[in-house]
Design a protein around this nucleic acid. Structure first.
Length: 491
RNA sequence: CGGGGUGUAGCGCAGUCCGGUUAGCGUACCUGGUUUGGGACCAGGUGGUCGCAGGUUCGAAUCCUGCCACCCCGACCA
């Protein structure tokens, strides 16, 4: 076990916090609820960004940028939307400060009160739809497939690094369509993109489903979600995609001339994922030695630790490895050679484990003599000696293997922590003991959902798409039900 | 906003009950040397408005009053 990390078994949330801080991902800032994302953490976010951005563009989207500030009146144009976000908005009321009377600082200048207050965006539907009104006249202007990378602010009461911060980074896609069918297909398409990304890059298996009415995004007709399972048995909503119907088009009066010459309101979707995914990555794979990163998302995929005495030996090692490093880099593998003399090899081993670098290559005098290197994989901690000529072919293969193994391991964990129950007693028992996803019948009412939430803290995470229908009785009310839904305690 | 807790070196803490040498320990940092295949060792050194503002006292990190900040548990949120 690594120095200073609380064991997962002892205190899961302390373990999580220790990893974030000790691996240098982020820190609490001096501003309540806001974090400083440090280089190691930001590098992961950049990988997420790069990968997703390409996936968005490959599916026909383009990027744009809208203002941070939204006039207060915009928010209230869509009734459900304002209801959902009003309680957590930061509000700008003035635009100037002046020196205070005692000369010791500055105060808000009461003369500089804004005529209309601005809110700091908690999400951008309103400002964007107010803009789309100007962009759309005809069906020929549609669809609009725009994404924005931005920061948003939601004034949460209690925050946790990456999982819930007052300010966070995200992307939000906002699309406009001529038909209901097309808008819904778009929402589902992006839902698929998120699921694909989660499984194939983050190595986190997801449940694909839709939210019940009470868990839906404020202003949406349908919210599609990818639900992930963390190592402590709690669920995490990894990303959502919303079918917004014509709600925002109606609120902002966005109409277009159809092919037939009629006028109709535009159909909409929106979708987003945030820096929360970094938190998901930590909680899905990491262990008591630190971060474990899937190779496809690791900023550094291979670290080389030379063991040497004096410059000559270091030079000798470097010369031997240079062609191999170059070969790997040409294959788009990120390699770091840590020839620093200030830290001992043992220190470096521990440090790169903490940072989650998937593969470590160690090479010392012994290896120089035998023409070998030691290869260690982060996920299993297995070590083996291979010939130096094999490195170029072995490393790319091993990266693939680690990527696959992490997903398989996470899948096995989820399978083990997914339980079908038929009575409320079992329902509570499972939640108390091993947690995880609990598949149970539900009568479809918001009342039952609310009661269960109050009594057990478990919520309906989603109703699976392509859910098998099955006759049964609601675990809570005993009323008849046609399908099981996914319950879990969640972040 | 309710209940509990904590503010002392970059970080983690002791000292506060019961006022009294120069405020201490671990770690980190700097210098020198020996080391280097799993977080090295020895020696020396730097670093403090003791959260802030008043008060009591010959004397306050310690006692009193007020304020501020942060953390945890609830309520809120996904």
């Amino acid at each position: 076990m690594s120095k200073g990390i609380t064991s997962k078994e002892v205190d899961y949330s302390q373990w999580y916090n220790d990893i974030v801080v000790k691996a240098g991902l982020a820190d609490h800032s001096s501003v309540r609820g806001c974090m400083v994302i440090k280089p190691n953490g930001f590098a992961i976010w950049e990988k997420i960004q790069q990968t997703l951005d390409k996936m968005f563009k490959d599916t026909g989207h383009v990027n744009a940028y809208f203002p941070l500030f939204i006039p207060k009146s915009y928010l209230s144009k869509e009734a459900a939307h304002v209801e959902g976000f009003a309680k957590e908005c930061a509000v700008v009321t003035h635009y100037r400060l002046k020196n205070s009377a005692d000369g010791k600082g500055v105060v808000v200048d009461p003369e500089a009160k804004l005529e209309e207050e601005l809110i700091v965006r908690p999400t951008s539907e309103t400002i964007i739809w107010n803009t789309y009104k100007n962009w759309i006249q005809s069906y020929r202007d549609l669809p609009i497939l725009v994404n924005q990378w931005a920061n948003v602010v939601r004034w949460e009461m209690r925050t946790r690094l990456f999982l819930r911060t007052a300010e966070f980074l995200w992307q939000e896609g906002h699309t406009a369509h001529a038909t209901e069918k097309e808008a819904r297909e778009e929402a589902l398409k992006m839902h698929d993109v998120y699921a694909d990304f989660a499984e194939n890059f983050l190595a986190i298996p997801v449940l694909k489903g839709y939210k019940t009415e009470s868990e839906r995004f404020a202003g949406a007709l349908d919210t599609y979600t990818i639900e992930m399972l963390m190592q402590d048995g709690k669920a995490l909503q990894g990303g959502t995609s919303h079918f917004l119907g014509q709600n925002f088009a109606k609120a902002f009066d966005v109409t277009f001339a159809t092919e037939k010459g009629d006028s109709d309101h535009v159909w909409a979707s929106s979708w987003g994922v945030s820096t929360r995914l970094v938190g998901a990555l930590i909680m899905a794979h990491s262990d008591d030695s630190g971060l474990v990163l899937p190779p496809k998302i690791a900023p550094t995929q291979v670290v080389i630790v030379p063991i040497f005495k004096g410059e000559d030996q270091l030079k000798q090692i470097k010369e031997k490895l240079d062609p191999i490093i170059k070969f790997l880099q040409d294959k788009n593998i990120s390699v770091k050679f840590d020839g620093s003399e200030h830290k001992k090899p043992g220190w470096k081993f521990a440090e790169y484990e903490l940072q989650g670098v998937p593969i470590r290559v160690a090479i010392g005098p012994r290896d120089l003599e035998n023409n070998t290197v030691e290869i260690a994989r982060r996920d299993t901690k297995e070590k083996q000696i291979i010939g130096i000529d094999e490195v170029s072919s072995f490393v790319p293969q091993l990266l693939d293997t680690i990527q696959k193994d992490l997903l398989e391991k996470a899948k096995a964990f989820r399978k083990e922590h997914t339980t079908e129950v038929d009575t409320y007693d079992d329902f509570k028992k499972i939640l108390e003991s091993k947690g995880g996803f609990v598949m149970a019948h539900w009568d479809g009412t918001a009342e039952t959902e609310e009661k269960i939430k109050q009594e057990t803290k478990a919520t309906i995470r989603c109703v699976l798409l392509n859910n098998e229908s099955e006759e049964g009785k609601c675990v809570y009310s005993g009323k008849s039900s046609k399908q099981r839904v996914v319950f879990a305690k969640a972040y």
